[in-house]
């Protein structure tokens, strides 16, 4: 059974126009899923539906067998689905890193000794163990966002949802965060759902959902999605930079193979010429 399923989910904020329209999707344990769509496509609403911050008007969201429509399951779901939001400044609760990471386990009523273990584990997982006693306001954006991820990891979630978590970071910070997330997925077997409009973050995903106007327009591997130029055109999405360059080179007569998505693939293909 899938770890997280959404079945025919509809949701609206004001009961007038649906922001999410009849969305059905499935996420299996250990997967790295990307949800892409341009601004206003309903992706952030989807993130909040995943961890029961919002309840679907119709349909069901089920996490590990717990339906979010039942109020009793609220904390069971939030324990399993950790969401990291866009602005790191608005997610950190305490003025000391370790206190902030402790916030989640404290809420769950975890014992003190175990909280200590969880803090060490979470800060190590994001490579911030040296900053245990630091103050968030002295850290860079990327570092702050890594602390926010650690704060969520301390809940020991099965699924990590990143809701545009790199959008406010500089390229260096974005790189730091992506590396941390990829590592968590590979080494700790944390299921990752990244919600983004940066195409570079999509190419490493196992599966991609394209969302537009609150509806799922397409799903497939990154290669399949980026091959469908008509779909990208329709949903207002761009190709990753490497794919764009490969495209232009091919149209100028450079004999490159199809399906180049990452910088590494492009470099390899160019060297092979």
């Amino acid at each position: 059974m899938a770890l997280l399923t959404a079945e025919n989910v509809c949701f609206s904020y004001d009961k007038k126009g649906d922001v999410i329209k009849n969305v059905t999707l499935e996420v299996n344990e250990g997967e790295y899923i990307a949800v892409i769509g341009h601004n206003g496509s309903g992706k952030s609403t989807l993130a909040k539906l995943f961890n029961a911050l919002l309840k679907p008007d119709e349909g069901t969201v089920t996490v590990d067998g717990f339906s979010s429509s039942d109020k009793k399951n609220l904390y069971e779901i939030r324990k399993r689905v950790g969401v990291v939001f866009q602005n790191p400044d608005n997610q950190l609760i305490a003025s000391i890193v370790e206190d902030d990471v402790a916030f989640g386990p404290e809420n769950l009523g975890v014992k003190r000794e175990e909280i200590k273990e969880r803090i060490d584990f979470a800060l190590k997982a994001v490579g911030m163990e040296k900053y245990l006693k630091s103050t968030p306001s002295r850290l860079s954006g990327g570092q702050k966002q890594r602390i926010a991820i650690a704060g969520v990891l301390a809940l020991k979630p099965k699924i990590l949802v990143l809701d545009e978590s790199t959008a406010m970071l500089d390229p260096q910070g974005r790189k730091e965060v992506l590396e941390v997330v990829k590592n968590l997925n590979k080494e700790q077997n944390v299921t990752v759902i990244t919600i983004t409009h940066y195409m570079e973050e999509v190419v490493d995903a196992d599966r991609v959902y394209v969302i537009d106007g609150g509806k799922i327009e397409a799903t497939g591997t990154p290669a399949e999605i980026f091959k469908d130029r008509a779909l990208l055109e329709r949903t207002g999405l761009e190709l990753p930079l490497a794919a764009k360059i490969a495209d232009k080179l091919i149209s100028r007569g450079v004999p490159l193979k199809d399906g180049i998505l990452t910088r590494e693939q492009l470099a390899e293909a160019l060297c092979a010429l």
Binding site: V83, F85, Q91, E106, L108, I115, V152
Partner: peptide, 25 residues
């Protein structure tokens, strides 16, 4: 900010209940 912070606190299972433990003693 307050709105977003409230969401982030909810997402980290904050309920304000008495079962909350304290890390610092």
């Amino acid at each position: 900010r307050a709105d977003e912070l409230a969401d982030a606190m909810d997402a980290r299972c904050y309920s304000g209940s008495d079962k909350r433990t304290r890390y610092k003693k």
